[in-house]
């Protein structure tokens, strides 16, 4: 991967030197522990902080929503295939314009050691519609079905499933790390912060926690691209990916829709076609 790092630095340096972008958002082994975190290269000198390797598991698309980052100017951003899907959703939901981005796609065989679960059924190893692509095309078959985890979970009966979620959700401390790391949770004021009326209780008792986590999953229905960042950052280990994956499955099943595959798509909840509606409805 050393070559790719070099290529990335050259690309970034070129972009910054000719002022095509104000910042290159990428990965780098920053800090004394060497963890792979976000790097914001704003000068040609800073590109030496950038790196690429198998630890690029973060979805950097979240930073495109930060006003502090947008202030730095036009953004170049390093994305894997899954992250690229998040950008498609941001474009389709008018959060960012394609021309305001220089997308540096990296082909990806999967990240993490052991490989993250989302990588085992990934089908976007080669990020589409990028301005620069780094890495050789990847052609590998999924190791497991997209909904293997959901299907395994659903072999349990309803009481067992509910008990499982109660056990998990009671630990939620309402730190909102899931929301803050999510590239698609870009609301300036989250519904949980709206208090006229108070739709969602902010107390971290089971009732408030169920309300919050279910509400968030619902809000991501037809939008979530399954990057798994919410689950990764949850400090108390709530398997939020399982919740989101279930809704992704439902949307695929009922609407034949997979979020983030292109920027031109319309989400199932932002389109309504009377001709396709065969339901009598409630009225």
């Amino acid at each position: 991967m050393q070559d790719l790092t070099q290529l990335l630095r050259e690309t970034a340096e070129d972009l910054l030197k000719r002022k095509a972008v104000g910042v290159v958002i990428g990965y780098g082994h920053t800090g004394s522990r060497g963890d792979m975190t976000a790097v914001f290269a704003r000068t040609p000198q800073q590109v030496s902080q950038l790196a690429l390797d198998g630890e690029c598991y973060r979805n950097l698309a979240v930073y495109l929503n930060k006003p502090e980052v947008r202030k730095l100017g036009r953004c170049a951003i390093v994305v894997k295939g899954c992250d690229r899907r998040a950008i498609n959703v941001l474009i389709r939901e008018n959060q960012i314009a394609r021309e305001d981005l220089h997308i540096i796609g990296i082909t990806c065989e999967g990240v993490g050691d052991p490989k993250m679960q989302k990588c085992r059924f990934c089908t976007v190893h080669n990020p589409p519609d990028c301005d620069t692509v780094l890495g050789d095309p990847v052609d590998i078959e999924p190791e497991e079905g997209e909904f293997a985890a959901v299907e395994a979970f659903e072999t349990k009966d309803i009481d067992a499933r509910w008990n499982f979620w109660k056990e998990k959700l009671k630990d939620c401390i309402r730190c909102y790390a899931c929301r803050q790391v999510c590239p698609l949770c870009y609301c300036k004021q989250c519904v949980v912060e709206k208090n006229i009326p108070q739709w969602v209780e902010t107390s971290s008792h089971l009732r408030g926690n169920v309300m919050w986590n279910v509400m968030r999953a619902f809000h991501l229905t037809g939008r979530c691209i399954g990057c798994g960042e919410c689950e990764r950052v949850c400090p108390v280990g709530i398997p939020l990916g399982l919740l989101n994956q279930k809704l992704i499955q439902q949307v695929k099943d009922k609407f034949e829709f997979t979020s983030g595959m292109s920027a031109d798509e319309k989400g199932p909840f932002s389109t309504f076609d009377l001709g396709l509606d065969t339901d009598d409805g409630i009225l």
Binding site: C175, Y176, A177, V181, V233
Partner: peptide
């Protein structure tokens, strides 16, 4: 720049 503004660090 890196900080995402969640409360995990403070809460714990």
């Amino acid at each position: 720049l890196k900080c995402l503004g969640c409360g995990a660090c403070s809460y714990l």
